[in-house]
């Protein structure tokens, strides 16, 4: 099934989407059916446009498999029987109202929650054969493979260079030149190099909020993770900085498996390939982003994405 002409690529270009580096003739990730020919809501239009601008095979191998996963804070069950696969080198958006457990899931993927008193989990969380729920898990090694970017930019009170070099210095013994190259590559990946190359040894706290968040992304990338977790990475930023972060996520998609928690459904529609909707600790629905925003199979998903609650 091909897409219908009126809302084809020109619309996508008008939105300023960066053309992916892969060949443009590849099949879109999702195959919009006839129902998509005339999207009724603005959100659905965004999702459709975004889907058209993304290319790549529909079926990607699974990077992280989550099965029968339960998480608790003391007696409170925060996540109930979650089954979700994060596809390799794709963006998965976790959406849902506050307190639905999406951040909890994110924080279990790199075990940030195991520092929280009373927090525990059970089930399967499988990262290329590494069991993330195991008691003997080496969290230091895990966090090298799974990076995290937080809601509020949290640069260390150090220079820009030292911020990016912080992670590599923890794990590796690098020569100065190697470290310089790694810092530059990370800052380039985070689309920050050109803005900061003249003041690498100035304090990171002098950067703007959006720059700080991209610095935090560069810092996470510097340890060369496989998976990048983002907990509402743009919610503390202004619209322009948000757009830059979203562009960045789309660029990083080719090299990293990304999971992003967001309250902004437009954002989920714009940047993600797969969307998972959480409600009260349960995974209500997950699937290709376009499908979830245009043809949700669960009425609660529909109510949420159309803004009836949440």
């Amino acid at each position: 099934m091909t897409v219908s002409p009126p809302i084809h690529r020109p619309g996508a270009d008008a939105h300023g989407f960066v053309e992916p580096m892969t060949t443009p003739n590849q099949t879109p990730l999702t195959h919009p059916g006839p129902a998509h020919a005339e999207p009724t809501t603005p959100l659905a239009r965004v999702a459709l446009q975004a889907a058209r601008s993304k290319t790549g095979e529909a079926d990607k191998p699974v990077a992280l498999r989550i099965a029968d996963f339960n998480a608790y804070y003391g007696d409170f069950q925060a996540l109930k029987n979650i089954n979700l696969d994060l596809p390799l080198h794709r963006v998965t958006a976790l959406i849902g109202p506050s307190g639905c457990g999406k951040s909890t899931l994110l924080r279990w993927i790199n075990r940030m929650n195991s520092m929280v008193p009373g927090a525990r989990c059970e089930g399967v969380m499988d990262l290329h054969g590494l069991d993330l729920t195991g008691a003997g898990l080496d969290v230091v090694d895990l966090r090298r493979r799974v990076g995290m970017v937080f809601q509020k930019p949290n640069p260390f009170p150090k220079s820009i260079y030292d911020n990016v070099a912080f992670g590599p210095r923890l794990h590796l013994k690098l020569k100065r030149a190697q470290l310089d190259a790694l810092v530059e590559a990370s800052l380039r990946s985070a689309a920050l190099w050109d803005e900061v190359k003249g003041r690498l040894h100035k304090s990171a706290l002098g950067l703007s909020g959006g720059q700080q968040q991209r610095l935090c992304i560069a810092r996470a990338l510097a340890v060369e993770p496989e998976v990048l977790l983002m907990d509402e990475p743009a919610s503390a930023l202004d619209p322009k900085s948000t757009a830059r972060i979203e562009d960045l996520i789309r660029e990083l998609r080719d090299r990293y498996t990304i999971a992003i928690v967001t309250h902004n459904m437009q954002q989920a529609a714009r940047v993600s390939d797969v969307t998972a909707f959480f409600f009260e600790g349960a995974l209500i629905e997950s699937g290709p982003t376009l499908q979830l925003f245009t043809r949700p199979s669960n009425p609660r998903t529909e109510d949420y994405v159309t803004g009836r609650f949440g």
Binding site: V139, F150, A220
Partner: peptide, 9 residues
């Protein structure tokens, strides 16, 4: 959290 998330002991 930032330091721990980067894999700091």
């Amino acid at each position: 959290e930032g330091a721990r998330a980067l894999g700091a002991t």
